[in-house]
Write a protein that binds this DNA or RNA. Sequence first.
DNA 1: TACTATTTAATAATGATTCTAAATAATAAA
DNA 2: TTTATTATTTAGAATCATTATTAAATAGTA
Lengths: 155, 155
Amino acid sequence: METRIDRIKKQLHAASYKLTPQREATVRILLDHEEDHLSAEDVYLLVKDIAPEIGLATVYRTLELLTELKIVDKINFGDGVSRYDLRQEGAAHFHHHLVCLECGAVDEIQEDLLEDVEAIVEKRWNFQIKDHRLTFHGICWRCNDLGAEKPENDA
Amino acid sequence: METRIDRIKKQLHAASYKLTPQREATVRILLDHEEDHLSAEDVYLLVKDIAPEIGLATVYRTLELLTELKIVDKINFGDGVSRYDLRQEGAAHFHHHLVCLECGAVDEIQEDLLEDVEAIVEKRWNFQIKDHRLTFHGICWRCNDLGAEKPENDA
DNA sequence: TACTATTTAATAATGATTCTAAATAATAAA
DNA sequence: TTTATTATTTAGAATCATTATTAAATAGTA
């Protein structure tokens, strides 16, 4: 976990930004909540616990910076809020999401699954794909058949 | 084009809503700009030309209603604005988008392309898919190789 | 006509995000 | 070191999209 921060620090430096205490605190929160999909406000409230002097605007600026550097991804699930999601290290593409219409849970799919589709799109639409966003809306395994187990999404 | 409005009228009635003059004007604008991806504000400004008394809140309410009835889809490309996109008649799923990072153009893909992926997701993640959102970010055919022709995205 | 429900316009309110100005810290130059 | 320059931060104001409110208008119906 510690090395992860170091690597992010390097990424910042490579783009001639610094890992200020506020930025570090923000990154730490993101690392500690990798599973979640936090809004800027969420992050702000959590960061305040470890760095009480920080301002909301700084959190926004930091998240924007991290988004620019592709360290986090900014997503929007249709409620009025942007959420920020740490990108898997070394991942070329953004991972996918499963949004449950019933309980609101957001699960992640780390596999790409889109290779074939992207090949078609690149060729047929003559479109050079840089990144993608894929979200499925539906009923999750928890709400689907009660008593079901968590599927092995690491297959 | 006229029958299209009639069918939408029926859909409203089926859900016990009426096609008021304001709603009709709004739908007409959407039909006249099917290619575009208008924000609520955009729609408002256009509707005002044919129905000057309409209010912005009414446009919002109408778009929300149409979204509920799956007549339009509400999308968000990351700028702070929601955009509204008329759903292809009879389409079970929302169509995909190609957003050009260079010129900002938004093109549509009407084909599904996701059958295989969805089959995998449904099975492996035990997730009952109701709808999807797929957007590719990259460089469009216009910006890609200058002088290129528009690809036949109707293949 | 009278009653009821729906829809509307206008505007206020809200909530997320961005901007601004002043303060502070870091860095580079002399 | 001292000074100048630049980046970064904070706090709060401002902005922008969206939603809620309220009273009036409209339509549908008994």
